[in-house]
Amino acid sequence: MRVPFTKMHGLGNDFVVLDARGDPLPELEPRVAAALADRREGIGCDQVILLEKSESADFRMRIFNSDGGEVGACGNASRAVALLHGAPARVETAGGTIALEPSDGGASVDMGVPRFEWDAIPLDYPMDTLRMPVGWGYLEEPGAANVGNPHVVFFVADSDAIALDSLGPEIETDPLFPERVNVNVATIVDRTRIRLRVWERGAGLTRACGTGACATAVVAMRRGLVEREVAVELPGGALTILWQEDGRIRMTGPATESYRGSFEWDDYA
């Protein structure tokens, strides 16, 4: 079975997009997603994105990390899908329904309302998620938010100086986080700018993470560190995050189509 795909990226966070809205595909099992994402023997990507029909929205978007695990949200992929779709749309995800609106070279995405309750992150036991009384080495007192998937956010003097390649996997898999967690280290530049690096659960260090930018921004806003609209600067580029008065997050930034191709499903099944 020959399957077409579109390779896309948002600020260097890259995706293999499979469009099954017209012709359905076999079930995308985790091992198949991981094989497609493999950068040596597959197509190579941070996430595999599967588009399907939906009864409650314009279409459904499923997101598989490079380890094959399925997750609830991906901000950069949402912008890429908006660009591919080419028109405003309501999109069903495992993390909730979001709204996409393409623009020149990118998109604006309504990411929904963030959750801050300890059991919505989720955490293993109750605690204040604005300033959590926990730490790992020199990373202490993070904030937490769920923006379709779980994030912890540490504010540090210099995010580039943090050994995130070693601390990231330790925190991601800590028993405190029963569904694992995305790890963000952020530096407040001023009240309108944040520098950010992200260890993404199931994918590792990434050049950009849209939900990480959203989570970091709203945690910083809850602590009174920044204004309600900020530029979040990631290694791959910048995103604009606006926490609207109605409680919903709007993320705006670029997306790019890299190339198109096809593969034999049985080569990866």
Rank of each mutant, 00 (worst) to 15 (best):
residue 1 M to A: 13
residue 1 M to F: 03
residue 3 V to Q: 00
residue 3 V to G: 04
residue 3 V to S: 01
residue 7 K to A: 15
residue 10 G to V: 02
residue 13 N to E: 05
residue 14 D to C: 09
residue 14 D to Y: 07
residue 15 F to Q: 08
residue 16 V to T: 10
residue 18 L to V: 10
residue 22 G to I: 05
residue 23 D to G: 13
residue 27 E to F: 11
residue 31 R to E: 15
residue 34 A to I: 08
residue 35 A to M: 11
residue 36 L to V: 08
residue 37 A to M: 04
residue 37 A to N: 03
residue 38 D to H: 13
residue 41 E to K: 15
residue 42 G to A: 07
residue 47 Q to L: 06
residue 48 V to Y: 10
residue 49 I to F: 10
residue 49 I to K: 04
residue 52 E to Q: 13
residue 53 K to E: 13
residue 56 S to C: 06
residue 58 D to Y: 05
residue 58 D to G: 11
residue 60 R to E: 09
residue 60 R to H: 08
residue 60 R to C: 09
residue 62 R to W: 00
residue 63 I to E: 07
residue 70 E to H: 04
residue 70 E to P: 01
residue 72 G to F: 02
residue 73 A to C: 06
residue 77 A to N: 01
residue 77 A to S: 12
residue 78 S to Y: 04
residue 79 R to C: 12
residue 79 R to V: 11
residue 80 A to W: 04
residue 81 V to C: 06
residue 83 L to A: 15
residue 85 H to M: 05
residue 86 G to N: 02
residue 86 G to F: 01
residue 87 A to K: 15
residue 88 P to F: 09
residue 95 G to T: 05
residue 96 G to V: 02
residue 98 I to P: 02
residue 99 A to C: 09
residue 100 L to K: 00
residue 100 L to F: 05
residue 101 E to Y: 00
residue 101 E to H: 11
residue 103 S to A: 13
residue 107 A to Y: 08
residue 109 V to A: 09
residue 109 V to W: 07
residue 110 D to M: 06
residue 110 D to S: 10
residue 110 D to R: 03
residue 111 M to T: 11
residue 112 G to D: 01
residue 112 G to V: 06
residue 113 V to Q: 11
residue 114 P to E: 07
residue 115 R to V: 05
residue 115 R to E: 14
residue 121 I to K: 01
residue 122 P to S: 03
residue 123 L to F: 11
residue 124 D to P: 00
residue 130 L to N: 08
residue 132 M to G: 01
residue 134 V to H: 07
residue 134 V to L: 12
residue 134 V to W: 14
residue 139 L to N: 04
residue 144 A to H: 00
residue 144 A to C: 03
residue 144 A to P: 04
residue 146 N to R: 07
residue 146 N to T: 04
residue 146 N to V: 07
residue 147 V to Y: 00
residue 152 V to G: 04
residue 153 V to K: 00
residue 155 F to H: 03
residue 157 A to V: 02
residue 157 A to P: 00
residue 159 S to R: 14
residue 159 S to V: 11
residue 159 S to T: 10
residue 161 A to E: 13
residue 162 I to D: 03
residue 167 L to T: 14
residue 168 G to R: 13
residue 171 I to N: 07
residue 172 E to N: 08
residue 176 L to R: 13
residue 178 P to K: 03
residue 180 R to F: 07
residue 186 A to M: 12
residue 196 L to H: 02
residue 197 R to T: 05
residue 199 W to T: 05
residue 199 W to F: 15
residue 200 E to M: 06
residue 201 R to G: 03
residue 202 G to S: 03
residue 203 A to V: 15
residue 204 G to W: 06
residue 205 L to E: 06
residue 209 C to V: 01
residue 210 G to W: 09
residue 211 T to F: 10
residue 211 T to K: 08
residue 211 T to G: 07
residue 212 G to R: 05
residue 222 R to S: 08
residue 222 R to G: 02
residue 224 G to Q: 07
residue 224 G to W: 09
residue 227 E to N: 12
residue 230 V to Y: 12
residue 233 E to W: 09
residue 239 L to I: 10
residue 241 I to N: 12
residue 244 Q to Y: 02
residue 244 Q to P: 00
residue 245 E to M: 02
residue 245 E to N: 05
residue 252 T to L: 09
residue 252 T to I: 13
residue 255 A to R: 09
residue 257 E to C: 12
residue 260 R to K: 14
residue 261 G to P: 10
residue 264 E to S: 14
residue 264 E to A: 15
residue 266 D to H: 09
residue 267 D to R: 14
residue 268 Y to R: 06
residue 269 A to F: 12
